[in-house]
Simulated scan of single mutants.
Amino acid sequence: MKIVREKIALLGVLTALSVVLGLVVHIPLPASKGYFNLLEIGIYTTALLLGGPAGLFVGGISGLLLDLILGYPQWMPFSLLIHGLQGYLAGRIGYGQSQKRQVIGLCVASIVMVIGYFYANDLLYQWGAAIASLPGNISQTLCGTIGAIVMMRYLKKAKITEKSILKRKEK
């Protein structure tokens, strides 16, 4: 039971850190009525470190919270769904795998994010905004992919794994 509480607390901290990454760098993109941010670094690192369900939680909740905080409430349901699926796929494919497999997972997740926001833009603001969203979303997922790969390299070097984070202390 203790490990469950620790994992819930860890997911809360990782969600908060992901939101902070999005707040530190957020560049409005008027053509698509959205913004560029670094949220993917947090989502992808969580997914690769802790797996698909953790990526789902951190991706969905952090995306939704970031939209709320930055004043983009129209994007909240889309971010919950798209970033959640993005985190799940990155973790489902890449968790505990080789770096090559992790990169494949990140690429699949990135494609899902770009396509998801393309259709969300089309639904909210029409075809022109959907087209205008592509460069920003592709750049955002590329930065997230590179950032997560760098983070995972440092975490591996420091021998930080899911088990080391959640290790029970015996008395």
Results as ranks from 00 to 15, higher is better:
residue 2 K to C: 05
residue 5 R to H: 10
residue 13 V to E: 13
residue 17 L to M: 14
residue 20 V to P: 09
residue 23 L to M: 15
residue 31 A to Y: 10
residue 31 A to R: 05
residue 34 G to P: 11
residue 34 G to H: 13
residue 34 G to Q: 10
residue 36 F to S: 04
residue 36 F to Y: 12
residue 38 L to R: 07
residue 39 L to T: 12
residue 40 E to N: 13
residue 43 I to Q: 01
residue 44 Y to P: 02
residue 46 T to W: 09
residue 46 T to H: 06
residue 47 A to M: 09
residue 48 L to E: 02
residue 50 L to D: 03
residue 50 L to C: 02
residue 57 F to A: 13
residue 58 V to S: 08
residue 62 S to D: 09
residue 62 S to N: 10
residue 69 I to T: 11
residue 69 I to Y: 13
residue 70 L to M: 13
residue 74 Q to G: 15
residue 74 Q to I: 13
residue 75 W to F: 11
residue 75 W to A: 00
residue 76 M to H: 01
residue 82 I to T: 01
residue 83 H to R: 00
residue 84 G to V: 00
residue 86 Q to S: 07
residue 88 Y to S: 01
residue 91 G to H: 05
residue 91 G to W: 06
residue 93 I to Q: 03
residue 94 G to T: 08
residue 94 G to E: 07
residue 97 Q to L: 05
residue 100 K to D: 12
residue 101 R to Q: 15
residue 103 V to F: 15
residue 107 C to Q: 03
residue 107 C to T: 14
residue 108 V to H: 00
residue 109 A to P: 02
residue 109 A to W: 04
residue 112 V to Q: 00
residue 116 G to W: 03
residue 117 Y to E: 00
residue 119 Y to A: 08
residue 120 A to M: 01
residue 121 N to Q: 14
residue 123 L to D: 01
residue 124 L to F: 12
residue 126 Q to T: 10
residue 127 W to E: 10
residue 128 G to L: 12
residue 133 S to T: 07
residue 133 S to K: 02
residue 135 P to Y: 01
residue 136 G to V: 03
residue 137 N to W: 04
residue 140 Q to D: 04
residue 144 G to Y: 06
residue 146 I to T: 09
residue 149 I to V: 15
residue 150 V to Q: 08
residue 167 K to T: 13
